[in-house]
Design a protein around this nucleic acid. Sequence first.
RNA 1: GGUCCCUUCGUCUAGCGGUCUAGGACAUCGCCCUCUCACGGCGAAAACACGGGUUCGAUUCCCGUAGGGAUCACCA
Length: 511
Amino acid sequence: MRFCPSPTGAMHLGGIYVAMLDQAIARQSDGVYIIRIEDTDQEREVEGAAGDFDRILRWFGLTADEFDGQGAYGPYTQSQRADIYMSYARDLMRRGKAYPCFATKDELTAMAAEQRAMKVQPGYYGRWAPWRDAPDDQVRAKLDSGQPYVIRLRSPGEGERRVTFTDIIRGEITANDNQNDVVILKSSANSLRLPTYHFAHLIDDHLMRATIVLRGEEWISSVPVHLQLLEANGFDQIPYAHVAPLMKQEGSARRKLSKRKDPEASAEFYIEAGYPRQAILSFLRGLANSRLSYLSVAESLSEPVHLEEAGMAGPLVDLAKLDHVASEWIATMDSEDVLREVLVWAAHHDPKLAAAVESDRDLAVRALDIERKGVENPRKDLGKWSDFRAYYGYFFNPLFELVSDPADERLGGIDPEVVRTLCATYLDRYVQATDGDAWFEHLRAVSETCGFAATVRAYKDAPDQYVGSVREASQIIRVALTGTKRSPGLHLVTDVLGEPEVRRRIGALVG
RNA sequence: GGUCCCUUCGUCUAGCGGUCUAGGACAUCGCCCUCUCACGGCGAAAACACGGGUUCGAUUCCCGUAGGGAUCACCA
């Protein structure tokens, strides 16, 4: 099993997807999950990317089973394996299966232009491969003059030949054989030459004893090249599994999820929003095997993933579905666990929230316990840790702003005098009810004395006789207590807040 | 453009010749529960890209067409 990121930018969700599959397949088959850093492109290398990858992989619980310092097949970074690739390339040259090519970039682009004009296959082959069978003395002269060169494979492919190979996900695939003398070792100013992906990956997979080559669909078309390279080196073929890319809807079309255009393409996006890693992993597993998407998060993470079941068309990343999975998952957690995760997230992404919650963890647990602890169907209000502020923030004084204007629009447009009277009367007769019905009966009694109808029905029947119904009255109390128009049952909120705080918040409206 | 891959409700998909008046899940909408939410219950709307074959019979097999994706680098 292998997962091979290249440090050329931020970690892509698709990278997490493939890494997750790699790890899952390795785990369920007693295999080893390794990560190889493919950093053979010096020009695109991004400073610090490897460290970022490591941090993100760690966050997702997708760190490799083997790594430098602990693993039999290291080093796991390709740039440190340059001598290995070079010795294989030398062997190929000795046996006439590879050769140096001195064509310059300009010559190559001119050739490509000519090929386009003539409408022939682009590439380095046949009459378009000037150095393939160049005389020795000519090669020697170039070598002696110190001109830069690359090493190319001497492709045995012929024009019309077809090759067939088996892909675990797609079954049998037939394609034209490769006839292109691909570059296997790039040019270099010094004696150390780096390989191209094509060459490096199969040497590594062979040496590291990979049992499945799991990679993105974009590699399908280069399998014929890899097959020839395998053959030239005398390596056995390793089964391929090409995974369909994660997609994005754009208008009526869809395209590959793009790091540049789509914020949700980056793995960091999910960390910042505070999605639980289990939910993301479960969601991703569901995309790979829809069978898993019908299961609970815990089950979907423990059931095996089957590559053969994976779809061949790229699935759309549906954040609404992720939200659902995430809220199902959080609903299975204890309040203490939720709190711990919220704090870990907030420490990095919402320090003010972290400080407020940290100052009264007990309050936080009691707030989270509402309709969560000891109930059959827990609340599914939280889909990600960043939701905590909106749903529970008002319990914490540093995050709560008193509602002191009786004409505040959140109060529903009830006459300010009535609002004031209701709040005053409510405090006058305050009792902390032990259950919802009792609480509501109490509120009903209070609001009736302030001119509210005891039932919504009564109000509807004679709107002129009342200032509102008990529904409006309870909304006033709700807004006073929470600053929002939506909250869990108010008797639960008051119970968690405690009488002094309830008095302070409602008192603010009395003036 | 050449080549390869793909095509069932908005989305993820089940289906592997009759079981399909096409099933599920998410999303949407409606009703119920109800002090507002959330949860929960019930229900609705919603798809086999198109055209030819093969067959007694095609969502399922074959061929075209259309559409989508990928790839044609000293990037991975």
